[in-house]
Design a protein around this nucleic acid. Structure first.
Lengths: 197, 197
DNA sequence: CCTACCGATCGGTAGG
DNA sequence: CCTACCGATCGGTAGG
């Protein structure tokens, strides 16, 4: 997915990864078979193995490409010289947009990572734990600066991250409101819930 | 699960359903095998079928027993003569407590229902859609009465319900804060996010 | 990229 | 509640 392309065409591998994300999202990792995937790609199941090593490899490519994007954004936000609540809003908006634009991948990374096997599993869990701690540290900074209510930071992170995963329902619904309206509503409720005023 | 008992002992069936909830939560419905379940119960796999009809039956018993509790609570809350924001807080606290006390069942009902098969699948999806509409209607009432910010009610429901599912992370963590502190933190953030003040 | 096929594991049944 | 076993399906490989 991160390969540089000279044209708009996706490599066969990219097609496989993309179709895998859609299938894993729809059926779950375990219930999605390599034969399902082969049919979606338009080849026989055995042919997939000329491009990938295993079914699990597909899952960990998806999980880590998503995790890397979030960690990269966290680096960027932490280095900025802004108020804690602004950092949180930036992270929140990034999460919302990632979920809207890369729905299948982000969803799979969020819900199917438990099917990873070691060493990827513990690696992923570690990255996730660290990300949440960094997020909580920003909230704690905001509480010390009186920008944010006196709440448990870990609980706040948990609420924010899970609330965002709710976009999944919006994504598959008849979509009454637009993506930008969705974003503003979420920011209003969640930033509003954290701040004193 | 709803059967009346004359003593504290669970019937064999109850043990199977309870162990199934734990297994489906831990591994996911598809990845949890009947042989895993048999081992957890302490019998051979074939023996399970003297108490249950199929693996799917276990899933739909879990999903519908959880759904029924929420629908029953919704009936109760709707019939009360209180402000919309109080109804929301009541539902919110009920959800939180259900998630804390019946963690495995509620989690499975929330995350594994897609493995139901028709007619149970569409039945469950219907109940879920109706529940959310009733929840949204209360929020809309609150907006009309100026108790709640002018937001999209469906988005608010989505945020609330998914935020609660975040308790899953708390449940399996080293549990820094108590259940009641968790509840108060969630109510503070979410009710605070909805209200004008 | 395909045909042919493998060993393993699955949910479930027969019969006692 | 057990032993014995079934047909189906799985991820993956061999060989071309």
């Amino acid at each position: 997915m991160a390969r540089i392309k000279t044209d708009n065409h996706l490599s066969r591998k990219d097609v496989i990864v993309t179709k895998a994300a859609a299938l894993f999202r729809e059926k779950g990792f375990k219930a999605a078979s390599m034969r399902d995937l082969a049919e979606a790609v338009g080849v026989e199941a055995a042919s997939l193995y000329n491009h990938i090593k295993s079914k699990t490899e597909l899952l960990h490519e998806l999980c880590f490409s998503v995790a890397n994007r979030f960690l990269h954004k966290m680096d960027e936000v932490e280095s900025q010289n802004t108020k804690a609540i602004d950092k949180i809003e930036k992270l929140l908006r990034f999460h919302i947009n990632e979920m809207i634009q890369h729905y299948e991948e982000v969803y799979v990374s969020d819900r199917e990572w438990k099917h990873l096997s070691d060493p990827y599993l513990s690696n992923f869990q570690n990255q996730r734990r660290i990300y949440r701690k960094r997020f909580a540290a920003i909230i704690e900074q905001g509480i010390r600066n009186n920008e944010i209510k006196k709440i448990d930071a870990a609980t706040a992170v948990l609420i924010i991250l899970h609330a965002i995963s709710g976009i999944e329902s919006w994504h598959r619904s008849v979509q009454k409101i637009s993506a930008s309206e969705l974003e503003e509503n979420m920011v209003t409720i969640l930033v509003g819930g954290l701040t004193n005023q």
